[in-house]
């Protein structure tokens, strides 16, 4: 199939403003969009800049806005995008070049919610055991690959770059609802502040954008309830 690809491009060393660039590419319907971007970069225009690493939806580096919605280029098939594709960098992040956005603040906010196991008791002599039901409670959050698609799809972050964002809350949920963890209270304290969970207006763009199928908004709502009811629900 022959496809027209429109890409919003920007080179800070040369352009004062972003502009639309167009490429006509021959592609197989079961090629992924990432393959097509590679074809452009390798055979048509070597200056086209984007991130990718694993090419299999695991590393989370190629989130971008494809036909208006945040998707991973490596998980989108050409047959699903139509004859004309529009590709833009994600909203809500500063553009470094072409499709590459600055993720520094994203990871800063991720670290701010303490996404690691916190314990205060003496270390047990054996493993920290957990039932299947207890493991199930926070299963969704463990699937996150930190691609930033959810955070970049959220109107609250477009309006306020300081808001902690859905991805951080997903990763806080991962530990708040872990029966082995003892840091729930301090994380809930952090997330109940001005730029914490309450900036979420249940818009559900994040849940639609997540390439891992995580019900992002639902996890945020669980964290809101944990704040209101004074702690996570037990399994």
């Amino acid at each position: 199939m022959n496809i027209l690809i429109r890409i919003k491009r920007f080179d800070p060393e040369r352009d004062s403003k972003p502009y639309w660039d167009e490429f006509r590419v021959e592609a197989d319907p079961i090629d992924r969009l990432l393959d097509t971007l590679n074809t452009i970069k390798w055979t048509m225009d070597g200056t086209l800049t984007f991130r990718r690493s694993c090419a299999h939806g695991v590393c989370g580096s190629d989130a971008m806005r494809i036909n208006g919605r945040n998707r991973l280029a490596c998980k989108v098939l050409m047959r699903d995008v139509g004859n004309k594709v529009t590709i833009e960098p994600m909203l809500g992040y500063a553009v470094i070049k072409d499709l590459v956005v600055d993720m520094d603040r994203f990871f800063e906010k991720y670290r701010s919610v303490k996404p690691f196991l916190i314990t205060y008791d003496n270390e047990p002599g054996t493993e920290r055991l957990q039932s299947q039901a207890q493991r199930e409670v926070y299963d969704e959050g463990t699937k996150c690959i930190l691609c930033g698609a959810c955070t970049g799809s959220c109107p609250s972050i477009w309006g306020n770059p300081d808001w902690v964002g859905p991805a951080s809350i997903v990763n806080a949920h991962r530990f708040i609802f872990d029966s082995r963890d003892q840091g729930a209270a301090e994380r809930l304290q952090l997330l109940s502040r001005k730029d914490g969970v309450w900036r979420c207006r249940t818009i559900f763009n994040c849940a639609d954008a997540c390439p891992r199928g995580i019900p992002v908004t639902d996890l945020i709502e669980q964290v809101k309830r944990a704040i209101v009811y004074g702690g996570p629900e037990e399994a």
Partner: peptide
């Protein structure tokens, strides 16, 4: 390669995020 002419100062139309019913 590399030596592309600078883009015209054409205005770039902003496209709205394609949110679903929730948005």
């Amino acid at each position: 390669y590399c030596l592309k002419a600078p883009p015209p100062a054409s205005r770039i139309e902003e496209e709205m995020y394609k949110g679903q019913s929730g948005m």
